[in-house]
Design a protein around this nucleic acid. Structure first.
Lengths: 373, 373
DNA sequence: ATGAAAGCGCTAACAA
DNA sequence: TTGTTAGCGCTTTCAT
């Protein structure tokens, strides 16, 4: 019989379930059952237990609990970069939703280098995540391999391989981009350019496709210009556009930052937005509404996306995986009209009530155009 | 002798330290020592162990590890609101620093309602945090009480009680605000207003004091206007200022959002920034540099603050607490000059090289004025 | 330097 | 319904 001491000062006087049990004059099992809300416990005993818990100031040790139960209630979320405001917000909603369902989030901003990636993968393994949401497009197959070894459910969000049985969630850019194009067309714009590019999110392709389809739909020639998706990219593209013989009258940017860059050039060049040029961005960036003029943006439902990821994961985890069928879900985008878009100058069309009402809502007001689908 | 089954499907084939030990033909103790990098292990045995770890794809169970060792290596960080970009960034640096030192962060965005607060406090207790950084000013004493029961080290960051023995870190606003006032004064401004207020951060008072002292220092009368610290607050204050008989020529805002609000009003009123009015904000908000014109801001060293919090906590945790002395640290603020400040129109002063060089740095360039202290 | 074995605090059979 | 008890997977003494 040895008395364990340990190098590190343990929490005071080992206040564990045993002390509570002794104090309440019941067994540890009863304490455990009470704390975990198991019905079968006698009301009077339960009351005694809770009282002891209070008096002693007991709080269960999650580590012991996980070890004993074999459950961790941990959900992994793999993103490229936590400092990107888009992923930051998604992560926040993911965590919030997870909490609401009794889970924890383990965030893995794996970046781009391989060491960092396997570090985070290892971390998730050590902590025994029960499921993982993958939000990076180019997670290499070796890592995916490593994961499948774990045999935990995975959902791919707006990314990932087209496994026959992979569960996927995706953002439908078509709705929002089509709404944007039609919004512009309805105000007389025919020369609409799209500034897009490639980045970590790799959502460029679907956005581009949607733009092309939407412009063709209204009988216009798609006008696109590719850049790296950033503030500087927006600056370069806008300069290029301004230099061309015939200027577009409206521009859709593939991200909020790109739009901010475009706006900068326009401001410096003295081009009035929206009178001389209309700009539409994405709300993947905060402060789109605090900028001058407030940006008309395509809204990505980050919160819905995050929630869907968590709930899907939970379903996968808690459902006996007898009939694991491929399932895929989609969240729609929409258009938020603010003040960076207006009627084409010299257009025969006059101000419609839609835009008028947007202005009426005041500085932060916005009218949301649902998808036209 | 019973074979444990468990309700929940456990990780495949119980790949634990025992399997590794068997595979490497050593004891579990040796495996443990090897994995934890304990020197005394024979090189050849260690090699065998690592090989087995590789081949088996073993990764230790953190829960068991924590349970056995009595250490959690968890650091709590209490903030009001994780969606505030300031705290979001601090939290990120906190976590990053913690990782670098082998710790984890447990974030508690306790908000304002009591239930939420005690929920997060409870969470930290359950998880046995080894130390806590408190970044909220008005953590009520009851909660502090609850914490002191845990007997874990606490550092108060820019907040908290003035316990005789409390460890505190704080932001020195004096340097940055003084630099801002002097920057303006050097460009001929004498009518400088300060838009400030109160918010969760409660950093208003030190900021206000610093402003008053700095303006008096240059022989000006402090001109302050109080609002709630927000975008709308900035709008209201700016409107009020524009309506007054005599307008200020330069304005320092107590936060980035307030500055954005002020900028909005100025833009709508057709007041040119910086030609007709200079604006200075705080960089507690991203995109201050992406706005038009790029905002001259007072820089708060969020990263240093977070790092200091973590390293201080670690020192407190890992140092035998024999002589626990009160200690306090400070991080300085500084001024980042961009393009929202300029010479007073009609001033006898001409453009100095300082501002000229800022312009030369281009769209995103900035010259940092260190504290004048 | 290595191994045997006693727990860490809890959960969940199983028995009562 | 309640209690007894065998682990969960690891660390760390203690003995070798």
């Amino acid at each position: 019989m040895q008395t364990k001491v340990g190098q590190f000062p343990r929490s005071e006087g080992s206040l564990g379930i045993r002390e509570v049990a002794r104090h309440a004059r019941v067994s540890t099992a009863t304490v455990s059952r009470t704390i975990n809300g198991i019905e079968s416990v006698d009301r009077r005993l339960a009351a005694r237990v809770w009282k002891s818990v209070q008096e002693l100031g007991y709080s269960p040790n999650v580590f012991a609990r996980s070890l004993a139960s074999g459950r961790t209630r941990l959900l992994g979320l793999i993103v490229p970069d936590r400092s990107d405001p888009f992923f930051a917000e998604v992560a926040q909603w993911f965590e919030e939703t997870a909490w609401a369902l009794g889970y924890e989030m383990l965030l893995s901003p794996i970046g781009s280098n391989v060491e960092r990636r396997s570090y985070f993968i290892g971390r998730m393994r050590e902590r025994k995540v029960e499921g993982v949401a993958v939000m990076v497009f180019d997670l290499d197959s070796a890592l995916i391999e490593e994961f499948s070894v774990l045999k935990v459910p995975i959902v791919y969000v707006n990314a990932g391989p087209e496994f026959a049985d992979a569960t996927t969630l995706s953002v439908n850019y078509w709705y929002g981009i089509r709404a944007a194009v039609q919004h512009l067309a309805s105000m007389g714009h025919r020369q609409i350019a799209f500034i897009g590019g490639q980045n970590l999110r790799r959502s460029s392709t679907p956005k581009l496709k949607a733009f092309i389809r939407a412009t063709q739909e209204i009988g216009c020639v798609p006008w696109t210009i590719e850049i790296d998706e950033s503030f500087e990219g927006g600056i370069r593209a806008m300069k290029e556009l301004l230099d061309s013989d015939v200027r577009p009258t409206a521009i859709i940017c593939s991200s909020g930052l790109v739009a901010l860059g475009a706006l900068r050039v326009l401001d410096q060049t003295g081009v009035d937005v929206p009178k001389q040029m209309s700009i539409i961005g994405f709300d993947d960036v905060p402060f789109a509404e605090f900028v001058n003029p407030p940006l008309t943006t395509i809204h990505i439902p980050r919160r819905d996306l995050a929630r869907l990821a968590v709930t899907t994961l939970r379903a996968l985890i808690e459902t006996p995986r007898e009939h694991a069928v491929k399932s895929s879900w989609e969240v729609p985008t929409s258009l938020i009209v603010r003040e960076s878009t207006d009627f084409l100058a010299g257009s025969a069309l006059s101000k419609s009530s839609i835009h008028g009402s947007a202005a009426l809502l005041g500085v932060q007001g916005a009218v949301i155009l649902e998808d036209c689908g």
